[in-house]
Design a protein around this nucleic acid. Sequence first.
DNA 1: TATAGTCCTTCCAGTGACTGGAAGGTCAAG
DNA 2: CTTGACCTTCCAGTCACTGGAAGGACTATA
Lengths: 129, 129
Amino acid sequence: MNIGQVAERAGIPAKTIRYYEDIGLVRPQRSENGYRAFSEQDLHKLAFLARARALGFTIEDCRTLLGLYEDEARESADVKALATEHLAQIEEKIAQLREMHATLARLVEACHGDHRPDCPILQGLAEEG
Amino acid sequence: MNIGQVAERAGIPAKTIRYYEDIGLVRPQRSENGYRAFSEQDLHKLAFLARARALGFTIEDCRTLLGLYEDEARESADVKALATEHLAQIEEKIAQLREMHATLARLVEACHGDHRPDCPILQGLAEEG
DNA sequence: TATAGTCCTTCCAGTGACTGGAAGGTCAAG
DNA sequence: CTTGACCTTCCAGTCACTGGAAGGACTATA
């Protein structure tokens, strides 16, 4: 398979696949004409990466996960630890965003939003505390 | 005021303040020795920026907000529109994170996490659908 | 056979918002 | 007169791509 077809089937831009090769996440063969020649296994790996990325894992986490996936002697505890850690980070981010949202929503509600210049949002940003 | 004191009082690293000057968000005077000389107004501006950044506004949004803050003829509607747009983006991010969290939490719960290799998390990442 | 159009290649640079570090100037205290 | 804290500029790195230029390869059609 050429990169275009793999890109479509894995749902990843060709550019990103080249980048993944650059950083050693996939190592496709090469055809005689210099084109990358992807196997079904390469495609499978890329789809795995796409799903892991969609769950918010960093590239380095993805590298680790791929390693575990391909390691027959892995311990599921290692996978679970990684995923649990990531889950905690997601929770933290959600909490942060919720705080931002609460504060900003309060300011937005207080703002009449008309042609006049006085604005509780700007006041909120300008005040200390 | 020198940069160190401003950094402490505004709660922003000195490096970041220099960066903000680089991109034109603040324009402190210079002392004879070449040090940046911040006024109380500069400090106020930086504190404003810190709060806007803490609410998740982008630097460009912050630039706009500062402009509105300093424009006596602003219309609060413009501020509200910007904030409302940002609020929607926060909501979208929260929704995305919640989806990630739900999916990953389901996988983590299904994983026994012991010394054995079979792992629903990896299976989930490997499977299509 | 010429050509047009699509695919592929590499390489370089830019994104956002900093952050780290090197190399060196300035200032206050002892 | 030295030590140490503070300041300066400049360059490079982060993360995960993304855009674009310049050029080679392949396919279909006139």
